[in-house]
């Protein structure tokens, strides 16, 4: 007897849960041939709001974890992704990748997670400094996570573009709200399932699907977001983001010219992009000028 295939409902990912969009709207994701691939949630601004609340609540716990533990968890995501290679390759092919490109993209995505897993407990040392000052103070600067990062992911790479921007943000102790590629949303939802089974606390990564044209504004003007990442090269949208982000002086990061498939797609500087430098002055007795006692 022939069997009816059970199709997956592609839902969004907020606070460790898979709700449908609050708006009840959806759109049909199609490939280039015009074949319908899935009904995908068309998220609304209220989904953004809910996601930011979850992300904000998760900041304390995530940034407070030992750097080494964050590293373990990123590594765990890579492990889980490895186990699901076939599914991701299949989805990428459905979304117009060639078999070879799909495999390369999944491999690169896994490797990129491993790369940032390695950096989790190292970037602090590389980018911290002990500063020479002209008074008797021990003066040092360390990077600290900025908080909630909103990310509008690249449109053309369904998985790699997503992983390449999420990984550095969370490696640095931030939490994030991500808008996946509108044209190629399948991998983002499946990636959320990977995250869900990788010991990543709920709320650290929130993934929405929908139209950038509707949601970018809220990614940029929400007062509880500390940095906004935009991966496309649309002049009008960039201007909008810069204007709206000025409301609470967000960090604005445009990754519009980066080819995620190359080595330029990974660097510890992507981590420091969403870090704030804290400088501490600690009073000391200057050893050299002390006459006795040392």
């Amino acid at each position: 007897m022939s069997r009816i295939e059970i199709l997956k409902t592609y839902k969004i990912y907020i606070g460790g849960q898979f709700p449908r969009t609050e708006s009840g709207r959806y759109y049909v994701a199609k490939n280039k041939k015009g074949q319908a691939l899935a009904n995908v949630c068309l998220s609304s601004r209220k989904d953004v709001r809910d996601a930011v609340v979850s992300a904000r609540n998760a900041v304390g716990g995530w940034s407070g974890r030992a750097a080494f533990n964050r590293s373990q968890i990123l590594y765990r995501i890579a492990e889980m992704l490895e186990g699901r290679r076939a599914q991701f390759i299949d989805e990428l092919i459905k979304q117009d990748s060639s078999a070879k490109d799909a495999e390369t993209e999944v491999n690169l995505s896994i490797d990129r997670l491993i790369y940032y897993a390695g950096w989790c407990d190292k970037y602090q040392q590389v980018f911290s400094a002990v500063n020479p000052v002209a008074s008797s103070h021990f003066n040092f600067s360390v990077p600290e996570p900025t908080g909630v990062v909103s990310i509008v992911a690249a449109q053309n790479t369904a998985l790699l573009g997503l992983v390449s921007v999420i990984a550095p943000a969370i490696a640095g102790g931030n939490t994030c709200v991500v808008l996946a590629s509108e044209d190629k949303p399948l991998c983002s939802v499946t990636f959320a399932e990977v995250i869900n089974s990788s010991d990543v606390p709920g709320g650290v990564i929130n993934i929405l699907t929908g139209k950038p044209s509707e949601l970018v504004k809220y990614f940029a003007n929400h007062m509880d977001i500390n940095a906004v990442v935009y991966c496309e090269n649309d002049t009008a949208t960039k201007k909008l983001i810069q204007e709206k982000a000025s409301l609470n002086v967000k960090r604005v990061l445009f990754y519009d010219t980066i080819n995620w498939k190359n080595d330029e797609g990974q660097s510890p500087y992507f981590i420091t992009d969403t870090q704030e430098i804290k400088t501490t002055w600690h009073p000391i007795e200057t050893v050299g000028s002390a006459k006795a006692g040392y």
């Binding site: 904000r56 003007n221 929400h222 509880d224 609470n248």
Partner: peptide
């Protein structure tokens, strides 16, 4: 018209 943050 802008979502707020508890910080303010």
């Amino acid at each position: 018209g802008v979502y707020q943050s508890a910080n303010y």
